[in-house]
Write a protein that binds this DNA or RNA. Structure first.
Lengths: 225, 225
DNA sequence: AATCATAAAGTCATCGGATGACTTTATGAT
DNA sequence: ATCATAAAGTCATCCGATGACTTTATGATT
């Protein structure tokens, strides 16, 4: 098993530069050596350096400015929390997603408008219709509803993170659980929309926690067995 | 303000290919046209195509196999949300971290032990001692305290995410704000520990929200000016 | 001496071509 | 039908050249 070190120069260059960035070799805002210098420092061609730099730029570490140079933008290692979350247990993942859910619902209540509320109601009714018929369609419309709740928070970070955790949790469930978790009923869903419509963040908070409590309880039971 | 459409060919190529991938133009496992073909399809040089493909490969969409071709690996990129988070606004970042903070404090209250509580008190007093003397030392011990609160939740995902957001927020502040944000006083800090010690999650929840409310208010004032 | 338009230098963006390494497919002998 | 080998296909890497853009240096003007 393993080895995976099917090394290619560009990836090696990415890691070399990333390591230096994380080691604070250059301060934030500081300019890296130019492409020719990096090329000779790493003993690879300029084209390879460009591929490496572009990867790091796409990951938010660097920024290149034509005519000026390449600058360090950030030294945060996005890969680490990501892999940690992946390897964590399902219970931890659920708790993290609940944190996002609750905060999103609170913000959604504060920033609620008639438009977003009616959109939520429409999605909820679509979810209801597909419930009886098609299982796959139901899962999709259910997810669409929850996503819309998060979207109503108007917070780009929460929206992105929720997507991330949804995927991670789905993967973990597929890998570790045989049995299904209970799906809250229509009333629990409607309670969330009502709370958002009321504009009261504490109510929205409580609605989401009430929604998730039975799911978490069932999860604990499954994990113990 | 802004425009950010400082288009360059490689990024345009990345988006063009990513769009096709998300539109399921090629099935998972299917081979993309070779570099020369992509090059003429997109009307860019082969080098530019390579930069684009490597970015998408680094994001988990594609995989290139030397001598064989480039293949679609997945149509979802889990790292994207975190990269987005890094580029989001400060208010969004704070709200996301608050979500983690609150949930962590709730869990810390539920899972509290005499050991963790006394450790928190020790860190808090260390923070108090360094307050007067050394600014740098104070920041470190303040951060250590907050980290310990999160750690008391015993949730690996929350711990990792909190680290991530702390760094991201610090970097965003350094890049965008001139003035300092207010630092909650000792009483506000102690209230969090007390709430955790009480074992009441709602109390912990309220303590953290009360702790952060003035900071968020000050942030809004700064962002408006 | 200070200001400002302009030239020069520095740097990334993009291109095209060439060679090597590796994989897949076609070939042909057995 | 099998299998070793050749051929073709494809990515990996390098090199050199030109263009576009930014920063710095220059020098004339006031």
């Amino acid at each position: 098993m393993q080895s995976l070190s099917k090394t290619n120069l560009a990836d090696t260059a990415v890691e070399a530069i990333r390591t230096d960035i994380l080691a604070r070799r250059w301060a934030i805002g500081e300019k890296l050596p130019n492409e020719a210098a990096l090329s000779s420092m790493l003993s690879v061609s300029r084209g390879t350096v460009r591929e490496a730099v572009r990867v790091l730029a796409s990951q938010g570490y660097l920024e290149t400015r034509q005519g000026s140079g390449t600058y360090v933008l950030s030294t945060v290692d996005t890969a680490r929390p990501l892999t940690m979350a992946r390897r964590a247990g399902l219970r931890d993942q659920f708790e993290a997603r609940l944190a996002l859910d609750v905060e999103a619902a609170r913000l959604a209540a504060l920033r609620q408008t008639p438009t977003t509320v009616s959109r939520l109601r429409a999605l909820l009714s679509a979810r209801g219709h597909s419930e009886a018929s098609d299982r796959a369609a139901f899962i999709i419309s259910d997810f669409a509803f929850h996503q819309a709740v998060i979207a109503a928070s108007n917070n780009a970070v929460l929206i992105g993170m929720y997507d991330f955790f949804s995927t991670v949790i789905a993967e973990t469930i597929a890998a570790t659980l045989e049995d299904d978790l209970p799906e809250p009923d229509m009333a629990a869903h409607a309670a969330i929309v009502d709370a958002i419509e009321s504009g009261d963040p504490d109510k929205a908070d409580a609605a989401v926690r009430g929604f998730m409590a039975p799911v978490l309880a069932a999860l604990d039971k499954l994990l113990l067995s």
